[in-house]
Design a protein around this nucleic acid. Structure first.
Length: 430
RNA sequence: GUGCCCAUAGUGUAGCGGCAACACUAGAGUUUGUGGAACUCUCAUCACGGGUUCGAAUCCCGUUGGGCACCCCA
């Protein structure tokens, strides 16, 4: 192929997959900041870190999340491997953790078992504000057979404190209780009873949902349905005595901690595994939840483990960053300046390679531009990165076993013997 | 999955059927041993493919990607 022809064949540049974004260097400080916050909060409240694979068997999510849930119905990133296994990129974190808990008998680590995680999740949906196909969540899980409502609060607290630590103000914590296996069927019946002769006035989606997943009717935003749900029976009025007691305790503990919360009787969650307490956390002025979670009393059993309740919550990291950016929350951590090593000539360049290693061992942060031979260019770079000191190492210095230290602010220069360079730098830096 | 809008240099924009422009960034240079200022130069055939036209960045169609909303969700 001639050169001319090659130029003609222009290819579509390869782009990233829809809804899957690069996290570029410019954004890394935000990610560092968030991960640091999560890690510190998790550490303080004694959560242990766990990492699970991003890929799991399809069946892991199918039952726990619910066959009729949207995530399972249409948002699974699933495919067949060469070996014929049906696999998915995980759409959320809890199921994997419970799988790992059962598989490795993690109950032996003690009760309550507190775990935290952070990593990418995948859902096949249309990207839009606060939503991508690959996104990141950090979450907390507490698994303990004693079913204490204090764990519900501790999970919420961990999420809350993380946002707090990131200086996100006006956090709005919404909570509700959706009951257990005893009271939920009764509630469901009441709900269906209420909607029985109102089905005609419902929107299309709700007409379908009433048969598949009636509790989602409470989530609908179509005006007609909104009207109807005002009079609809509420989950909290239909709780059994156990659930009511549990929820009462949760609220008591929240009040003790002075965590502001809002009771939202219409709050239901998308996954089937939730029982009793559910919650969502919002930041003022944003439609999407920054975090959400709830209790899952039967999940572990359902997945083949020994009966043990748990509670968890997860936060969307991209969403948190979005909020931090629009609220102009500053990161506050400036990179500390490094000194800059400038070389002139081949001999000095070669010696610089070693000199940098010597400085590293002495604990001195040094930057270089060994690929550029022009003194001007190197000084310009040193200036751009605001190096407080530059070391100028040229032909003459290499020969004399010395080096020039230049104060970049004043321009004052001093030639010192190479052997004393570390001491000289340390003196000048203080 | 559905609907609407969008796509010009690394970034932000102009050009609206007739020579692709500007700002910032980046790189090279203006005494091949001294930076910050100034100046000079360099970097896009306009996402990709096709069509209409003498002529397309510009009009049309498709694809890909982006944005927003619905759905749903962190």
């Amino acid at each position: 192929m001639s050169k001319k022809d090659q130029k003609k064949v222009k290819r579509q540049p390869v782009s990233s997959l829809k809804g899957m974004n690069d996290i570029l260097p410019a954004d890394q400080p935000w990610w560092d900041r968030i991960r640091k916050a999560v890690k510190e909060i998790a550490g303080f409240y004694n959560f242990l870190k766990i990492e699970t694979p991003v890929m799991e068997k399809l069946e892991l999510f199918k039952r726990p999340l619910g066959d009729t849930s949207d995530v399972v119905e249409k948002q699974m990133f699933s495919f067949k491997t060469k070996g014929g296994d049906e696999v998915v990129l995980r759409p959320e974190g809890t199921a994997s953790i419970v799988r790992s808990y059962i598989e490795h008998g993690l109950s032996h680590l003690g009760q309550p078992l507190k775990l935290w995680y952070e990593g990418p999740m995948f859902r096949y949906e249309q990207p839009q504000a606060g939503r991508t196909r690959q996104f990141h969540q950090a979450g907390f899980e507490i698994i303990s057979s004693d079913n204490d409502p204090v764990y519900d609060v501790q999970t919420m607290l961990a999420c809350y404190r993380t946002l707090d630590d990131l200086k996100i103000k006006n956090i709005n914590l919404q909570i509700n209780s959706i009951g257990c296996n005893k009271c939920r069927p009764i509630y469901r019946k009441n709900l269906l009873e209420y909607y029985k002769n109102k089905e005609k006035s419902l929107c299309g989606d709700c007409k379908r949902r009433i048969h598949t997943n009636p509790m989602r009717l409470l989530d609908c935003k179509v005006s007609g349905c909104v009207e109807l749900k005002k009079e609809a029976p509420q989950t909290i009025d239909n709780l059994c005595s156990d659930c009511r007691k549990h929820f009462k305790k949760v609220l008591e503990y929240l009040e003790e901690l002075k965590l502001p919360y809002m009771l939202n009787p219409l709050l239901v969650r998308g996954f089937d595994y939730y029982t009793k307490t559910v919650f969502e956390i919002f930041a003022e002025g944003f439609d999407f939840a920054l975090g959400a979670g709830g209790r899952y009393d039967y999940l572990i059993e359902l997945m083949g483990g020994r009966q043990s309740p748990g509670v968890g919550g997860a936060m969307g990291l991209e969403r948190i960053i979005e909020v931090m950016k629009t609220k102009e929350i500053s990161l506050g951590n400036r990179v500390r300046p490094k000194i800059f090593l400038i070389h002139i000539g081949d001999t000095a360049k070669k010696r610089s390679l070693v000199l940098i290693e010597e400085l590293r061992e002495a604990g001195i942060d040094v930057m270089e531009q060994l690929g550029k031979d022009s003194l001007n260019a190197q000084l310009r770079t040193a200036n751009k990165f605001e190096a407080p000191l530059s070391l100028i190492f040229g032909q003459k210095e290499a020969f004399e076993q010395s080096i020039i230290i230049r104060d970049m602010k004043t321009g004052a220069q001093e030639t010192v013997p190479l052997k004393k360079i570390v001491a000289a730098i340390k003196r000048k830096m203080h």
